[in-house]
Design a protein around this nucleic acid. Structure first.
Length: 886
DNA sequence: CCACTCACG
DNA sequence: ACGTACGTGAGTGGT
């Protein structure tokens, strides 16, 4: 018989998590009759994800019966002082239980007991009957139930993501066994359940005491063995509290539940009731799923769009087109549209939808004319992809006007999917499936037969058009029309042209480097193996860790989740202890360059001798671009060996130039601008070396001559730290100084630049009020975590609130510069191509006779991209390859 | 598919 | 007491 699996869910806890997961969406999630639905919706999503993961045969969802329990009888303030459940969640609780019933899932509550105790009791019943048990909750108390048969899944931020607590994982996290965890809590108490333990004992101390003594009882039996200390006094004084806390923390595994395991068997859903419920709640997504469940995967007809197949026979219908606005979708299978095979297209003209697998039709009249006609506006999903795809078919797209992907990214970039279906689902539009659903992935990825494929293409082009008004309205409401019209749309074309141009890379130069590096790597390997006394895989951190820390007995400075850390940070500190360490560092450095850059680049040089990266325009949270296949934004600059790679990047013409121009301190200038700090603005206006200026101020020096290189280095690190949302810990780690010293630097900095501190406070405050941070061009980044009660999660969001407007505004600025630059190149009919963007730097492929023009116009255009309260400065360099362009 | 490591701004 | 710098992509090993 198959293994029976019992899934136990802490209903209140999961509902609570579900509610806050979409708290920001509270107002968007309401049913037609005014009920909030965010928790119900997310609860169902979480439930689906968990069921998919666990595949249970039996399920029970436990709920708390009320405030009064046997624990409140023991201790009247148990869970006292808790904020009461928001009414917006409370109203959803009965509906969740109704939904569970309709889904065929048992839910249960027991008077006088908490959900924890129901779960504790049923998990024991399950274990005794030979079931495998999984418990799902957001409450770490339940981890005490973990055993070889029971796993406790603690919900994490993402929907359906959980952290699995097995006894082993428990040991790693808390250093104690699940049962000992109860004793740990006895000493610590629990502030969220509002009961104290022993004063002054937190998780660390509790864990080490329990590891030593095994239990609270045993600890107190040996209390006299402890050295006289404040802690000992407190342990003795708070003994009663500790024993009470232990009782409160212990989950009752023998509670009088009136449920049998038979009652928890998962039943068939009641589809009719579910349909009624989903309709009442306005859950389109689940209604679509329900239809698929009932019909065995097929959507119902209501979700289909009519279409006709376009062929040479009916293409004449497109002659003399009157429409001035159409929608278009070009399908290529795979991400890399420079190479991906064409699979088909769809076209929506008025109410008529055409689909076809035959992309050659696009090259025929009248279709080609329509696609190239600038006065016929086209709605698409991903202008850049479409432009490049059509370019490969010798079509110069004109009139690409609306981009659903870009619009959606600007409206909310929390979900950075570039799948049309997934994006549509964000706006409650489920009439289109995702590519993953239709085409599959990996080896099995394939275009389905005509009917399913055409349906999908038709749905795509219809949805582009259908969601357009809503997305445009959101852009307007967010005051993002300019960002969209004047920056992102134009920059999409600039990027398309850059990608198409590509950059010439000389394979010969790389092969020469490959040989040199191969020799050096062999030498280093031999030396390392000799000192290690054996051969091993140097690229395996695990094997390397074994050699360094077990065989050679070097001190392990840092651990990772899975073993010893062997990162640069660690190895740097071990350098002095053994010569093998420096050689490993050298090996690592060269091996990285060899595999990622030399070999990596050789693999992606295309037939035209060039590399054509793709810039991802809708990925980052801040508005920066990213670059893939290959990534040309992380070509080495720091080490000499690394920099050699740049010699392979050359201009198209042998006597041409690579011309590079980068903004100087653009992020700090943005900070000076947005903060309005007069001291920092003054420094930029007078053209000081900003880091030296900072050094003078924070170290209270009279003249620039007194600034030592070390002071400047420290000041520079502080400036960077400020941009990142500084902490004394981070700065101390970066500079290798004490935390105290780091704090002094920071305090001194804020004394000298008081408005910077005001900016940081304001950035956090505004993010808290609005729920997002914003750049100078109104690019948004939502920060729901800013309300988290987890210190770390919240702190991270606060630093992000400080950093995002700075990094994001710098991204806005260079995008404007790129648009103006491309315009200038075209106006002047230059043959020069803009080929790369590396966040604060633009790189051009320049014919010899255009160099002088470029020297003049590029800095001009970049410096005048926007007008800030401080000047923007851009510095140029050029040479016959990228290495020399400095 | 994840963890680790390391390349860039 | 907590346990951290901000934003990325790619190669490798190991499950």
């Amino acid at each position: 018989m198959a293994q029976k699996k019992l899934l136990l869910i802490d209903g209140n806890s999961v509902a609570f998590r579900a509610f806050y997961a979409l708290y920001r969406q509270l107002d968007r999630f309401t049913s037609p009759d005014g009920l909030h639905t965010n928790a119900i919706f997310t609860f169902k999503n979480m439930l689906d994800a968990i069921i998919k993961q666990v595949e249970p045969t039996n399920i029970l969802v436990a709920f708390d019966a009320g405030k009064v329990t046997f624990r409140t009888a023991m201790y009247k303030d148990y869970k006292g002082g808790r904020q009461k459940t928001p009414s917006e969640l409370l109203e959803q609780m009965p509906v969740i239980r109704e939904m569970l019933a309709d889904l065929g899932i048992k839910s249960y509550e027991l008077k006088n007991y908490e959900a924890d105790d129901i779960i504790g009791t049923l998990s024991k019943m399950g274990e005794d009957a030979g079931y495998k048990v999984d418990v799902v909750t957001g409450d770490r108390d339940l981890t005490q139930l973990a055993s070889d048969k029971t796993t406790v899944l603690i919900t994490k931020n993402g929907v359906g993501e959980t952290e699995a607590y097995t006894p082993e994982h428990m040991k790693e996290v808390n250093g104690v066994t699940p049962t000992e965890f109860i004793d740990m809590k006895a000493l610590m108490g629990d502030s969220s359940d509002n009961y104290p333990g022993v004063e002054g004992i937190g998780p660390k101390t509790a864990s080490s005491l329990i590891q030593k003594y095994g239990s609270v009882e045993n600890l107190y039996d040996h209390i006299d063995d402890l050295k006289k200390s404040k802690r000992k006094e407190r342990l003795i004084r708070d003994k009663d509290k500790a024993f009470l806390a232990k009782k409160l923390a212990t989950i009752d595994r023998e509670s009088p539940v009136e449920v049998t395991l038979e009652d928890t068997v998962k039943k068939e859903p009641d589809y009719e009731k579910l349909r009624d419920l989903y309709e009442r709640l306005g859950f389109k997504k689940f209604l679509v799923e329900l239809n698929q469940d009932v019909t065995g995967g097929e959507s119902t007809d209501a979700e289909n769009y009519d279409y006709v197949e376009l062929t040479t026979d009916n293409i004449a219908e497109l002659d003399n087109l009157e429409e001035k606005e159409i929608s278009f979708y070009l399908e290529m299978l795979g991400d890399n549209y420079h190479l991906a095979p064409f699979e088909g297209f769809s076209l929506k003209v008025g109410d008529q939808v055409y689909v076809s697998r035959d992309v050659a039709l696009l090259q025929e009249m009248p279709l080609k004319g329509i696609l190239e006609n600038k006065t016929i506006k086209k709605n698409v999903f991903d202008i850049k992809r479409t432009y490049v795809g059509l370019h490969r078919l010798d079509i110069t797209a004109g009139g690409l006007d609306y981009d659903m992907l870009l619009a959606s990214y600007l409206v909310n970039n929390e979900n950075n999917s570039n799948d049309l279906g997934e994006v549509a689902h964000l706006y409650d539009e489920y009439s289109v499936k995702t590519d993953l659903e239709v085409y599959g992935k990996g080896k099995k990825q394939a275009i389905p037969e005509d009917e399913e494929f055409f349906k999908h293409l038709a749905a795509k082009v219809c949805v582009i058009e259908k969601l357009k008004p809503e997305l445009l309205k959101l852009l307007k409401d967010h005051e993002q029309d300019d960002l969209y019209d004047e920056i992102e749309i134009p920059v999409a074309f600039v990027l398309a042209k850059m990608e198409i141009a590509g950059m010439k890379v000389e394979a010969g130069t790389l092969i020469q480097l490959q040989n040199e590096f191969a020799t050096r790597l062999t030498e280093l390997e031999n030396k390392i193996y000799q000192q290690a006394g054996e051969r091993f895989n140097l690229n395996s951190p695990k094997q390397l860790g074994h050699i360094l820390f077990e065989k050679l007995n070097l001190p392990p400075i840092k651990k990772t989740k899975t073993g010893y850390s062997t990162s640069v940070e660690v190895l740097d500190q071990l350098k002095t202890q053994s010569p093998i360490v420096s050689e490993i560092l050298d090996y690592r450095q060269i091996a990285k360059i060899q595999s990622t850059y030399v070999k990596g680049l050789l693999d992606v040089i295309q037939a035209d001798g060039r590399v054509h990266t793709r810039y991802l325009q809708t990925l980052t949270a801040t508005g920066r671009l990213s670059s893939v296949d290959p990534n040309l934004q992380n070509i080495p600059t720091k080490t000499e060996e690394g920099k050699q790679i740049r010699k392979a990047f050359v201009p198209s013409a042998p006597d041409g130039y690579i011309f590079s121009c980068d903004y100087s301190q653009v992020e700090l200038r943005v900070l000076a601008h947005v903060s309005g700090d007069s001291n920092m603005q003054e420094a930029f206006k007078t053209g000081y070396d900003i880091h030296a200026h900072t050094a003078m101020r924070i170290f209270h020096l009279e003249s620039p001559d007194e600034v030592t290189p070390l002071m400047r280095r420290h000041a520079k690190a502080v400036n960077f730290g400020i941009v990142y949302g500084i902490s004394d810990y981070g700065l101390s780690k970066n500079l290798g100084i004490s935390r105290k010293r780091a704090k002094e630097f920071i305090d001194s900095y804020f004394e000298q630049y008081p408005q910077i501190r005001e900016y940081m406070d304001k950035a956090v405050k505004e993010a808290r009020e609005k729920g997002y941070a914003e750049t100078i061009m109104h690019r948004r980044r939502y920060l729901p975590d800013i309300h988290s009660k987890n210190f770390n999660v919240r702190s991270f969001a606060e630093r992000t609130a400080i950093n995002s407007p700075i990094q994001g505004s710098a991204a806005d600025i260079i995008k404007i510069a790129m648009i103006n630059m491309q315009k200038k190149l075209e106006e002047l009919h230059l043959k020069t191509k803009m080929v790369l963007q590396v966040h604060d730097e633009l790189i051009f492929d320049v014919p010899k006779d255009e160099l002088e023009t470029m020297k003049k116009i590029v800095p001009e255009v970049m410096q005048s991209a926007v007008s800030l309260d401080v000047p923007l400065i851009a510095d140029s360099g050029w040479g016959h390859n990228w290495y020399d362009a400095k």
